[in-house]
């Protein structure tokens, strides 16, 4: 089937595919820097001004950063991913009685 052949074609050139993906990420970062720098003067400042009045503290600060610093959401996405994996794994190995949250498959049929 053609689809399988296409996937195999890509898998045979894995290092090239990886390089292309890194290229896409780099392009995305550059595009976002351009976007924020271009719109920085008016739009972003107005938007944050409005929200900063209504809320203070951590989240308001984060919002301000999100609106003004380019590539914020790239960093957010990456950190989110790492946080989710580590927190979940930590949770999975918590002790509950004699077992961990991640228990043996026959836990319920002893």
């Amino acid at each position: 089937m053609n689809l399988v052949r296409f996937i195999d074609f890509l898998r045979d050139r894995l290092s090239l595919v990886i390089k292309a993906c890194i290229g896409v990420l780099a392009l995305l970062v550059i595009a976002d820097i351009a976007r924020v720098v271009l719109s920085h003067g008016h739009e972003a400042a107005e938007a944050t001004g409005e929200h900063a009045e209504a809320a203070h503290g951590f989240w308001a600060h984060l919002y301000h950063v999100a609106e003004t610093i380019p590539v914020f959401w790239s960093v957010f996405g990456f950190i989110a991913c790492v946080l989710i994996v580590f927190i979940s794994k930590w949770y999975g190995h918590l002790k509950v009685g004699r077992t961990e949250i991640m228990a043996k498959e026959d836990f319920y049929n002893e």
Binding site: V24, L28, D32, F76, F78, V82
Partner: peptide, 11 residues
Amino acid sequence: LQILLFTALGF
């Protein structure tokens, strides 16, 4: 796109 693609990187 940034959130999703950088999540993929993390994955």
